[in-house]
């Protein structure tokens, strides 16, 4: 890995983050209408105290810095962001956006990482077995099943699972991250409770993802089997199992990691919607609530965090590749 490459990739990361955050700043200001005024109108319409509305609007605008020229707002916006300050929630005023997000992020991260790992391992193994020439015939029947699963958007699968396992048969809870009225603690019961609540959301992500993975892996396995080193291994008389695991699976895992990186954005999007369906207390659910309450500052904060999180993850993965696959050098040809 050359320094040149790292610098270039870092530049790309910065461009992605800066442009995403700038879009986040610019678009709401391009749109007609004033969120504060809108919010006030909404409050008045809801039958709150109708005092000096115009005065309140001015006061709020000052508070949120909306009375300054746009370029000044842009600078202070960046200044705040760099200090990790995402402002206040428009709806629950004293609450900070960052506290909404930090409360939700561990849930999302836990759910996503677990689900992605399970999908990755399951998908790779199933795909590899399917691509192996001596795979049992009956197993091929799962291919169309995978195709169908692949065609179902994550959260729709979530709805189906929710209905099947929380409504029809009440095996799992119908939503949330833990049982109401219980305090989260590090006890066996509490952990089991959390796992039980995470089971269906995780299953939706795994089931919806595993089909595509397995099919992709199957294709890669087939092409790896045509390689010379497989012939050599067979000629040497190695056991089938050894060829399968150490010559087949191991070499297909590398391109699989690449496609994992490519599909990460898709998975994150899917997980956001899955959380919404299960009212799982991660950022997807917070986003849904914020959209409903028209809490613009929370929406924007969540979007910024999502974009940066994803961009940084992809950056790290790109740097790790050459370590796991020595064939990648990133050198200019």
């Amino acid at each position: 890995m050359t320094v040149d490459y790292i610098v270039k990739r870092l530049g790309m990361l910065l461009v992605v983050i800066i442009s995403a955050i700038s879009i986040n700043f610019i678009i709401p200001r391009l749109m007609p209408g004033d969120p504060v005024q809108q919010k006030m109108d909404q409050m008045v319409a809801m039958g709150g105290t109708v005092g000096d509305v115009q005065g309140m609007v001015q006061e709020y605008r000052k508070k949120f810095g909306l009375d300054k020229p746009v370029w000044k707002q842009f600078i202070s916006y960046w200044g705040d962001l760099l200090r990790g300050d995402l402002g206040y929630s428009l709806n629950n005023y004293p609450q900070r956006v960052s506290s909404v997000i930090t409360g939700a992020l561990p849930w999302t991260a836990g759910l996503l990482i677990t689900a992605i790992l399970i999908t990755f391992v399951l998908g790779i193994l199933m795909g590899a077995v399917l691509g192996w020439p001596t795979a049992p015939r009956g197993l091929r029947g799962v291919v169309p099943v995978f195709l169908v699963l692949h065609a179902v958007p994550y959260f729709l699968l979530g709805i189906i699972l929710l209905f099947l396992f929380a409504v029809s048969v009440r095996v799992f809870p119908g939503g949330g991250g833990y049982s109401f009225g219980t305090a989260l603690q590090l006890s066996l019961g509490s952990i089991a409770d959390v796992l039980k609540h995470a089971a269906l959301p995780a299953l939706s992500i795994v089931l919806a993802g595993v089909g595509g993975w397995a099919l992709g892996m199957r294709g890669m396995m087939i092409s790896v089997l045509g390689e010379d080193y497989i012939n050599l291994a067979e000629a040497k008389g190695l056991k089938q199992r050894r060829i399968f695991l150490w010559y087949g699976v191991r070499n297909t895992m590398l391109p699989a990691t690449t496609s994992l990186a490519m599909s990460l954005g898709h998975v994150v999007t899917g997980a956001v919607l899955v959380e919404m369906i299960f009212a799982y207390p991660g950022i997807g659910h917070q986003l849904y609530r914020a959209i409903h309450a028209k809490d613009y500052t929370v929406i924007q904060g969540i979007i910024v965090v999502l974009v940066v999180w994803l961009a940084v993850t992809l950056f790290i993965m790109d740097l790790i590749y050459p370590l796991i696959d020595r064939r990648i050098t990133y050198r200019r040809r």
Binding site: M12, V15, V16, S19, A20, I23, N24, I27, P28, L30, M31, P32, G33, G265, V268, T269, V272, L287, I291, K294, Y296, I299, Q300, I303, L306, V307, L310, A311, L314
Partner: peptide
């Protein structure tokens, strides 16, 4: 290519949510 790559990295739904929430 750079623009396409940049937009590719940003989860599309993020941008769409920002636009959609601001449309009356």
């Amino acid at each position: 290519r750079t623009v396409a790559d940049v937009v590719f990295t940003i989860p599309g739904i993020a941008i769409m949510i920002i636009v959609a929430t601001n449309i009356r």
